[in-house]
Amino acid sequence: MATFAKLDSLRKQYSPPDGPYAVGPKEGVNLEILEGEIFSLLGPNGAGKTTIISMMSGLLTPTAGDVVLGGFSITKQPLDVKKQIGVVPQDLALYPNLSARQNLNLFGTLYGLSGKNLSKRTDEVLEFIDLKDRANDKISEYSGGMKRRVNIGVGLMHRPKMLFLDEPTVAIDPQSRRNILDTVKELNQQGMTVLYTTHYMEEAQELSNRIGIIDHGQIIALGTLDELVKTVGEYDVIRLTLPEPPALVVERLGAIPNIQRAETTDGEVRLIARDGRQQLPEAIRIINEAGLALHGIEIQEPNLEAVFLQLTGRALRD
């Protein structure tokens, strides 16, 4: 597949009062998104996902570097880039006192549509997001899931070649989340390139052709799901529910052969272990010796969570 978007040494340096901090290492973020793929940026809140999308969509001017998208530079030809992208922000960027149809018409006009093309495309998008029956109701009267669908619909008005979705499933019910994930897959099947940011590992795993893991403004891992999981080898994550474990116990757990690391988070001890099931009896023995009550055990096969944990020493949700 050909490259559709290329981030070339992209960096944003924030100054006070917003900073000081930077998105991107000193040499900047280098990344290629291929035409027709779903590329996910996975990282915790504040990792820099929105900043990267903002620079790619021309909202923020990069401190250094450039984004070339569809052959156009965002710093030199921003309007040409914007014609090719649809942006679905994390916030419900809609006018609540306007109806879905009025919102779509407004943004359609701003994307350059007019007349019959505009009304025809508005009907198509309303059909696609399954809101034709409620098209003339005010957005403020919609459920959270319906609002999210309109939020996506606005980004589709001008048939963009690439769609940016910035955490589109935050704070919605499971059914609406399912609906959005299916919508993203459907759009991708129609040939649309998708950049999807999330801090939900499951979404990145389900949707993505490739995943970039981002933390503290830097892309720390990049590849397909299989490639990323292989980086942690055969390590499992053992979660032991153990309220307030003494530091000495955690230290002893970490010292078990084949256990790479032991972490404590939220009443839980996490062990990164090669062949986790084999190490479990020794871990339980140490806990019993310390006279602690073990409330639960969970073993996770290698996944993105483990990758993130191994790379950063923190859980993705931290």
Binding site: L59, L79, K83, V87, P89, A93, L94, L110, Y111
Partner: peptide, 17 residues
């Protein structure tokens, strides 16, 4: 605050619009 302004800025329109 609602990001409608920023969204408008992601459309192919100059900010002065």
């Amino acid at each position: 605050r609602n990001w409608t302004m920023q969204r408008i800025w992601t459309t192919p329109s100059p900010r002065t619009v």
